[in-house]
Write a protein that binds this DNA or RNA. Structure first.
Length: 322
DNA sequence: CATCCATGCAGAA
DNA sequence: TCTGCCTGGATGG
């Protein structure tokens, strides 16, 4: 269930752990044996992301390209020199979760100040295989489960990729072709212009345009639902009727939400005030996503509905979004 | 146990 | 618009 924030966290983690280091690579599952052999023993120079795509520059000029799709995830494990063991991507077993980054302090008022999970480095966090890294003096990588498409490893730790839609080695030119198909990524500080220019010329609903990775990269179903609610926009509004100013604001707000997601390791769209005053209690992270039939945090009426748009669930408040 | 479902997307129809 | 990829948690019997 990875949206752009997860891929940027993943890129950061892979870069922290493997960047500039010689890595071992293998494909226990067998579907990336050739690629793994080409990576094995080379330096992983740098890991980076654009939208929902992860890239890693490999010594010699090739580029590892990973797309997690709907099911993909990477679990990390290792000794203390690893930032924090965690799993990034689709939700997995309890204890394999995305964790806020080490040393990150949540400062913004909208951010969660009540995250129930233990802080990384506290020794309380649960790590892959149920083993706390703090208690492991030397690295002993567990045998990978047989669904692991790619295992990367150094003397300090490992990363296991499962369930990915794409895991391939590209030439630099092939990577450029792929990048050219993607729109600007708010998490890479790309200007909104390309998104605004194209969106203001199409009659397609703004809800569909936001999900189109060639229009803006990294927005998924949750960011779509939540950013449109925050903007008070009906997802079915033709994009060209939204206006350049609101399109720009929408792009920037998606950037805000995604940066928050990078810091927290999960998406929190509601303001602290709205969370605290939620009808029926609880501290919901979302305004509309998967909240159909419940009371809206803003208008407090039971006006949140779920529909389908292009074969994906679409959530909105019938009162607050026009 | 079986079945459904998902924060995604390419390719066929 | 529909199907398939590919994984595991949630749900229901």
């Amino acid at each position: 269930m990875p949206e752009g924030h997860s891929l940027h966290r993943l890129a950061r983690q892979v870069d922290d752990v493997f960047g500039g280091r010689r890595v071992r690579a293998s494909s226990p599952q067998g579907r990336f044996t050739e690629g793994a052999a080409l990576i094995d023993g080379r330096v992983l120079e740098r890991a980076w992301a654009h939208g929902k795509h992860l890239f890693a520059d490999i010594e010699g000029g090739r580029v590892l390209h990973i797309h997690l799709g709907l099911y993909g995830a990477v679990s990390f494990g290792g000794d203390r020199t690893f930032t924090a063991a965690s799993s990034i991507g689709a939700p997995r077993r309890i204890g394999e979760r995305e964790l806020p980054g080490l040393g990150d302090r949540v400062e913004i008022g909208d951010a969660d100040d009540d995250d129930p999970r233990p802080a990384p480095g506290s020794g309380q966090e649960k790590l892959v295989c149920g083993v706390s890294a703090a208690r492991v003096p030397a690295l002993v990588a567990p045998a990978p489960r047989d669904t692991v498409r790619l295992r990367l490893q150094t003397v300090h730790g490992w990363a296991d990729l499962i369930g990915a839609t794409a895991c391939q080695l590209l030439t630099r030119q092939e990577a450029d072709v792929l990048l050219a198909r993607l729109g600007p990524d708010p998490l890479n500080d790309d200007a909104p212009d390309a998104f605004v220019d194209r969106a203001s010329r199409t009659r397609r609903p703004i809800g569909a345009v936001l999900m189109d990775q060639s229009m803006v990269a990294g927005v998924g179903n949750i960011f779509r639902a939540e950013s449109l609610f925050r903007a008070g926009l009906d997802p079915w509004t033709p994009a060209r009727e939204v206006g350049e100013q609101r399109l720009t604001a929408l792009y920037r707000d998606n950037g805000e939400l995604m940066r928050m997601g990078v810091r927290l390791g999960r998406i929190v769209s509601t303001t602290r005030e709205h969370r605290a005053a939620a009808p029926g209690g609880g501290r919901p992270s979302y305004y509309v996503y998967k909240r159909q039939g419940q009371a809206c945090l803003v208008c407090r009426r039971e006006t949140i509905v779920v529909e389908e748009m292009a074969a994906r669930k679409l959530y909105r408040c019938m009162v607050c979004q026009h």
